[in-house]
């Protein structure tokens, strides 16, 4: 029974997310049928068309029935069709997901080594100008709005230098060079925030570890400080980072919405944002559900890896 608990928890979280999204969408003002017709939807001669739309997308049914249909569709792995484009939600998510996954994965690949290096070295040079600069810059990176950073990067690298494209997306397998050149600015923009957060985390953990007795002993034994830092300290202070990275995925998806908007990337964030603005219920529900599943799975994976590396933990 205890072994089944994590699965049960997983299902409960999913159910809560699905229900909260369903209910909050219906509580938000704005009628999807009106949005489809525009400002002339109020005319008497469009009343019939409005009724057609409501009927076609099941918007005229009682909320509880809509909810029941939605839940039963999820169980049969059917995310439904967009109210606007009539495309299958699963197809829309499938097209948009690789963009967001690339963006997040590349940002992590860029941010993690940099944060580790900066965090470790700053902690070692505590209270020296290097440490203060790193910490200040890390805070700045966390506090600077991605939207602004993005525009600044475009201004410099695309307009001034003409080196990198300011927007758009090319699939990796279609044109790898085009893919990387299009992803570079968005990845740097998103990674900057992550570098800020992770550097501060690594710094705090390392500073704590450096105070431990075994480090003092190692120093007394004459082991070089570089070796102490990158072999002994790193191992202890970096393991908790796995959990943090898992948690940060959720935050990064939030950041991806903004970055995708600035760089015109057709990812999940943009799909979700436009669906919310257009009150495209099935797309919002389907996208949130997919993101939730991925985030939960990643967090479970992070916990698993952490346990593997640190068998004594009680997470």
């Amino acid at each position: 029974m205890r072994k089944l608990a994590p699965y049960f928890r997983f299902l409960v979280i999913l159910w809560v997310v699905v229900t909260v999204v369903f209910v909050s969408l219906r509580l938000t003002p704005g009628d999807p049928a009106l949005l489809l017709l525009g400002p002339t939807a109020g005319r008497q001669d469009t009343a019939e068309r409005l009724a057609d739309i409501r009927e076609r997308y099941g918007l005229n049914r009682p909320i509880i029935i809509q909810y029941g249909i939605y839940l039963s569709d999820i169980v049969t792995a059917d995310l439904g069709k967009s109210n606007r484009s009539e495309r299958r939600v699963s197809e829309l998510v499938k097209t948009a997901a690789p963009v967001t996954i690339s963006l997040i994965l590349l940002s992590m690949l860029l941010a993690i080594p940099i944060s580790i290096y900066l965090g470790l070295t700053a902690a070692q040079k505590r209270e020296r100008p290097y440490d203060r600069s790193v910490r200040t810059l890390a805070t700045l990176a966390m506090a600077t709005p991605s939207f602004w950073v993005g525009l600044l990067l475009v201004n410099f690298f695309s307009i001034r230098l003409g080196l990198l494209p300011p927007s758009g997306y090319i699939k990796l397998f279609v044109d790898p060079i085009g893919y990387f050149s299009h992803m570079m600015l968005p990845v740097v923009t998103l990674a900057l925030y992550l570098i800020g957060t992770l550097t501060r985390f690594v710094y705090t953990e390392t500073a704590d570890t450096l105070e431990q007795d075994y480090i003092r002993v190692s120093r007394a034994m004459g082991i070089s400080s570089k070796r102490i830092l990158f072999q002994f300290v790193a191992r202890n202070s970096l393991t908790p980072m796995i959990i943090i990275v898992g948690v940060e995925v959720g935050t990064l998806i939030g950041g991806a919405v903004i970055v995708e908007e600035v760089f015109g990337l057709p990812g999940l964030g943009r799909l979700l944002l436009n669906a919310v603005l257009g009150r495209d219920y099935p797309v919002v529900q389907g996208t949130v559900l997919s993101i939730t599943v991925v985030v939960i799975l990643l967090n479970i994976l992070a916990e698993f890896v952490y346990k593997l590396l640190n068998p004594r933990s009680k997470i």
Binding site: L151, V154, N155, S158, I159, G162, P165, P166, S167, G168, E261, V262, G264
Partner: peptide, 18 residues
């Protein structure tokens, strides 16, 4: 046609030639 909702982003794209 490319959807670019933010006017500032649209202008940067125009100046950059995208």
């Amino acid at each position: 046609f490319k959807p670019i909702p933010d006017p500032q982003v649209a202008m940067t794209n125009l100046y950059a030639g995208a």
